Simulated scan of single mutants.
Amino acid sequence: MATPVPFSPSAAVSALRAAGCVFAEEEAELILAGARTPEEAARMVDRRVAGLPLEQVLGWAEFHGLRVTVEPGVFVPRRRTEFLVDQALAAAPDAGVVVDLCCGSGALGAALAAALDGVRVHAADIDPAAVRCARRNLAAHGGRAYQGDLYDALPASLRGRVGLLTANVPYVPTTEVALLPAEARDHEPLVALDGGADGLDVLRRVAAGAREWLAPGGCLLSETSERQAPAAVRAFVDAGLTARLAVSEELHAHVVIGVRT
């Protein structure tokens, strides 16, 4: 067991820097601001030094202007995924029904609910810890989260009525999971990372079922990598969607957008 770090900014910064945290000063400030007691601050620093993602240590992540609850063992929303939110809002600004598959903490659904007036948000994930977390994050927006495998988790009444379908699917090829940073590899669920042999297994399944659930003119958006983007676009086209790729060089983000015509 790690020895507790004395409660002082300098000691916290030193411990975090020694552990390899590049932004040790900023992280120490966040930890000390969030701790209720010196003992809690020491425990939080110890958890970060042990390799837990900062967001899991703090209990929240900043995402698209929101503070999203992130529980231990739940996938941490990435900043690049804010680009998917922006593309979704541009593609379907009048969506009345939103579904977020592979929802993780529910960050995507919460961000879309906050930006769209009167929208009804439904989220689903196969991981029970993620669903518990998503329910907390969606509660303020009247959203609902369900546990299950992709579309199997959704109420049948949503078929053909979804205006906006987002799916931040796992897309790391199985053989490359071991190459991920330890924060992800050791502290996030494998089901949220491993996308199969070429990383596109889950994306293909989402695309294949999309037309059944999307309303006419409804949009499906999914994140992928630059290398996988051509194959991801083909998967959307093969599923009967009109597809295009949106890219943010700044965020190194690639989002496939498919429309049910």
Rank of each mutant, 00 (worst) to 15 (best):
L180N: 01
A24W: 08
V191K: 14
L190N: 08
L84C: 12
L200V: 03
L66A: 07
F7V: 01
P181G: 03
V76E: 02
A208S: 15
L179N: 06
V57P: 12
V202M: 10
G59H: 04
L154C: 07
H187N: 11
G65K: 01
V22N: 02
Y146H: 15
P189Y: 07
G51D: 07
L116W: 12
L154H: 03
A156N: 01
P38W: 09
A115P: 13
D127F: 07
V99N: 06
L158G: 04
M1N: 11
L165D: 03
R204T: 05
A232M: 08
V131L: 14
A243C: 12
P4M: 07
L190H: 13
A243V: 08
D186C: 15
L245P: 12
V13Q: 07
L52N: 05
A184K: 04
A123W: 08
P230V: 02
E25G: 12
T69E: 09
A253I: 05
R17G: 02
P72H: 07
H141G: 11
R135W: 03
V85C: 06
G109I: 04
Q228P: 03
E183P: 00
V76P: 01
G218C: 02
E226Y: 02
D127W: 10
D186Q: 12
G217W: 00
A19T: 00
A156R: 13
G73Q: 08
A246C: 15
G104Y: 08
L101H: 08
R205E: 10
Y151D: 03
G148I: 09
G96Q: 14
G34W: 09
A50N: 06
R205T: 05
S10F: 00
G109Q: 11
P93W: 09
R244K: 14
E55Q: 15
L138G: 13
A139Q: 11
A42I: 01
R159H: 02
L164N: 08
A28M: 06
E55A: 15
A88T: 09
T166P: 09
A178R: 12
P53V: 00
P6I: 05
E71M: 14
L66G: 11
D194W: 04
G73I: 00
L16H: 03
H254T: 01
I126M: 04
L84K: 11
P38N: 11
H64I: 00
G209K: 09
G258Y: 00
L180Y: 01
L245C: 14
D149S: 15
L52D: 10
R79K: 14
R205L: 10
A229M: 11
R211P: 01
D238V: 10
S248P: 03
Q147K: 15
L179A: 15
P216V: 00
A178W: 00
H254S: 05
T37M: 10
V191T: 15
A24L: 10
P189T: 04
V256C: 14
